[in-house]
Design a protein around this nucleic acid. Sequence first.
DNA 1: GGCCGTTAA
DNA 2: TAGTTTAACGGCC
Length: 421
Amino acid sequence: QFKQPALHYVAEKAGMQDIDKEKIQKLIMEASKGSDYFNREMKRSEEAKEKAKEYKKKIEQHQRNEKLWKIDQATVKGILLDAEKSRDFERTWAHIDMDMFYAAVEIRDDPSLADKPVAIGGQMMISTANYVARKFGVRAAMPGFIAKKLCPELVFIDCNFKKYKEVSIVFKGILEQYDPDYESMGCDEANLDLTNYLIEHGLNHDEGRQQVVEEIRKRVKEATLLTCSGGISCNKMLAKICSDMKKPDGQTYLKPDIETVTKFMTNLSVRKIPGIGRMTELVLASLGIYTCQDVLDKAVEIYLSFTEKTSHFLLRSALGISRNYHEEDEEDACQKSISVSSTFRPLSTLEQFKEKISELCEELAERIDKRKVAGVTVTLELKSVKYEVVQKSMTVKSYIWLAEDLARYCHQILESVWPYD
DNA sequence: GGCCGTTAA
DNA sequence: TAGTTTAACGGCC
């Protein structure tokens, strides 16, 4: 565990297990310290720890009252029993994830890059790094200037989204043949419900499930000349966690039985659960919870700290239970918002802000037009140089899609928060 | 409905 | 010197 908030996790990602964590963490710290971004992150971390303190108070209060604690324990037992009842091993999910996608495409098209440390992105932000670069601690979501400090030899390559999109279409075209309703998670990964395919092909058994994913990966490699990794399990969450375990170019199968799943979850870090990020990890750590087994051991503490929805999510996840069916509702699956944003040099006058907003509205209107959609709520979000965010929105009576209408409402919102600094 | 925070790719 | 963009969701008032 890091004593300071880790701005970029070392050894969290595939390819970063055998590296000098200490040294890299120190370099990142030196490069970050004192920056507005770092200060903001520190503040967020402090707020998370404060939250944990409140939780602890409530927990201790219940613990002191024997009767109350007994009731809490009984309630939690019920929740865990209910969760257990919903456990289902009948379906097979696969999570397929392209390895270091953008970097892999660039290296494929220029093999001379293969043994050099490569980062896709620029001095501002890196999207992906190859495994050579990861050995230096360089990784996605790290600004280029920090990556450069970790690895002075690092080769930066600009993003070429058009090319990645084309590869992605080929990739998805293969997945579609195994599950026409596959759930896409960005351009380089997807969740597939293989159950129907497996049954139809008489392959619904341990070997068959692994064979099918081997086949998918082989076909992806032939069609794109790129490797991908896979995870196979009885639900989406487990499949996703598994797909990360033998990266690159590997796959992990988790047998659908209670012993295997329980053993798998026991020592798993809570951070591996999709949906638990840096802040939740920090809150849980303050409560002495690091692994999924800790979540179960401290189920009452979880129940008392979080809302019903969140504690159910945490407990079910720690048991290795998650949804194993497609989001059925068309209504639920549709896009709910559309937005543009950009980072620019600080502005000062109201006029400058209005001008910038108008430009962004033009861009947004173009995309709205392409998608043939319209909306009723306009939200303006401003972020200061100190990373403080101000958000204000308004819902109107008529549908909006034109740039001029978007701009008019945004200007109105802007004036209501002016002066802004 | 409005505003804020978290997550993820 | 410098730390993105887009979208979704949950909590709280």
